[in-house]
Design a protein around this nucleic acid. Structure first.
Length: 429
RNA sequence: GUGGGCGUAGCUCAGCUAGGUUAGAGCGCCAGGUUGUGGUCCUGGAGGUCGCGGGUUCGAUUCCCGUCGCUCACCCCA
């Protein structure tokens, strides 16, 4: 290989393209089954579109440059700003709620690692203009159904669901100061992966009182947390009660759909959820081998904040990289379809014109057809037909031609039959 | 940005651990095994500056240093 590609970018050989198409096709099927309409925007956007939402520090993680017209531009790292602009342009005239989906290729300048490249495809499904909990449940159900579409079941995946406001209220009640909240969230996110002693040191460094730390670990130790326990721990203020009530209804709706077995209330879900305002969720493989497969939630203030309409909204994103790794690990890759169905065998070069006509008729009727480009022996042509995975060999030879027929051989059973050439003509010819 | 692992044919790897004649295997690929029938089998072939550069040495794929690349983890995560 004289020249490699860029790190974190993928070449999709035919065998890889199979999985990619499988994933993208599955995404589309389910999104449309949920009544979502597809949209797309430009892969290149003004840099400012992302700075405005996420701040200057994000610039280092963007693929960005100055174009020949002096504009600062960036390859899109996420779809939400583009979505906000597009929704804003049409929202006034569209019936609510708006249900749109997209499958953009996104780019981020980061060190590639497992499940995380510099480029990926991401399913985005969003609902705009609906404040009620049925929409929250609908969104989570859609995410689960997308994964079910690929053959993943309750034993494979789990949706962790919470409300953005719950844990903050609980921590407040524990005596955690407002300005150490971020550090505490980071600790909570690592409860499964890090020793308690290390995490206690971090809490201490963040200025969290010993008593508060004790209550955090006690709270997090509950293997099957309940909403009521959460409200109790937080000594339910009105906002906490409202969040708990809402979440309770969301979970109830999900039970009603029959997807309850995929769902788990998890108040420790706090990570990377800066702009969410209510329901938040992530879907994980149960074995915990991979990163989050998908994440999303309600972001009622975001559209207005990035210059879009002031409408409540919610949605999720699901990347193709982790999902692809998971499907491979669970043996759920799509099966390889042979490239062709029919292989036209020419016995002698004299049959070439007839062979070309037969092949073209078959193609016109929708069959996948190939033939040998060289005038090789019949045996060789059969070898190629077999190698290409053909179901049938269509033999065009002098004996058959004399009868205005071809010989059709079933390559798996070996059965042969003479068929009049006219029978191969497409129906509508 | 930080740290670990790995770089030998298209792919998966062996050889290197006391440095030495034309660097190997399996799979894959190509061509044959004659005259109209494939999958198995047999024969032959193509394909490698042993990632790159430097050092030690009579001699380096093998030892040392550097560098690049890949990969995993950390950081970060929209």
């Amino acid at each position: 290989m004289a020249l490699g590609g860029l790190p974190g970018f993928r070449d999709f050989f035919p065998s890889d393209m199979r999985l990619r198409s499988h994933i993208l096709d599955g995404w589309r099927r389910v999104a449309e089954r949920y009544g979502f309409e597809e949209y797309d925007g430009p892969p290149l956007e003004p840099l400012d579109l992302y700075v405005r939402k996420s701040g200057e520090e994000i610039v280092g993680q963007l693929y960005r440059f100055t174009d020949q017209g002096g504009r600062e531009v960036a390859l899109r790292p996420e779809m939400t700003p583009t979505f906000a602009r597009m929704v804003g342009a049409r929202a006034a005239g569209l019936p609510k709620p708006i249900r749109w989906y997209s499958t953009p290729q996104l780019f981020r300048y980061e060190r590639p690692q497992k499940g995380r490249l510099r480029e990926h495809f991401q399913l985005n499904m969003d609902i705009v203009g609906e404040p009620g909990e049925l929409a929250d449940a609908e969104m989570i159900a859609a995410a689960i159904d997308v994964l079910r579409e690929f053959g993943l079941g309750e034993a494979d995946i789990v949706a962790r669901v919470s409300d953005r406001r719950l844990m903050g209220a609980v921590l407040d009640e524990f005596g955690v100061a407002e300005d150490s909240l971020a550090a505490v969230f980071a600790v909570i996110d690592r409860l499964d992966r890090e020793d308690e002693a290390v995490l206690r040191d971090r809490l201490d460094a963040a200025g969290v009182p010993q008593a508060a730390a004790d209550r955090i670990f006690e709270f997090a130790a509950d293997p099957d947390p309940s909403l009521s326990a959460c409200v109790e721990a937080g000594d339910g203020g009105p906002e906490l009660r409202d969040a708990a009530d809402r979440l309770s209804r969301v979970l109830g709706h999900l039970d009603a759909t029959g997807l309850g077995g995929f769902v788990r209330f998890d108040p420790t879900l706090v990570r990377g959820l800066a702009y969410y305002t209510g329901t938040v969720f992530e879907v994980w493989d149960r074995a915990g081998e991979f990163r989050a497969i998908c994440g999303g939630g309600r972001y009622d203030d975001l559209l207005a904040a990035v210059g879009g309409p002031d409408l409540p909204a919610l949605g999720f994103g699901m990347g193709d990289v982790v999902l692809g790794e998971l499907l491979i690990a669970r043996g759920l890759e799509p099966e390889q379809l042979p490239a062709i169905q029919d292989f036209v065998v020419c016995v002698t070069p004299e049959q070439r014109p007839l062979g070309l006509q037969v092949a073209h008729w078959l193609r016109d009727s929708g069959r996948r057809v190939a033939y040998d480009f060289a005038d090789r022996s019949v045996g060789r042509q059969f070898k190629v037909a077999n190698q290409m995975g053909a179901e049938r060999a269509i033999v065009v030879g002098p004996d058959e031609a004399a009868d205005e027929a071809v010989l059709i051989r079933d390559l798996s059973s070996g059965e042969e039959a003479r068929v009049p050439i006219g029978n191969l003509k497409p129906m509508n010819d």
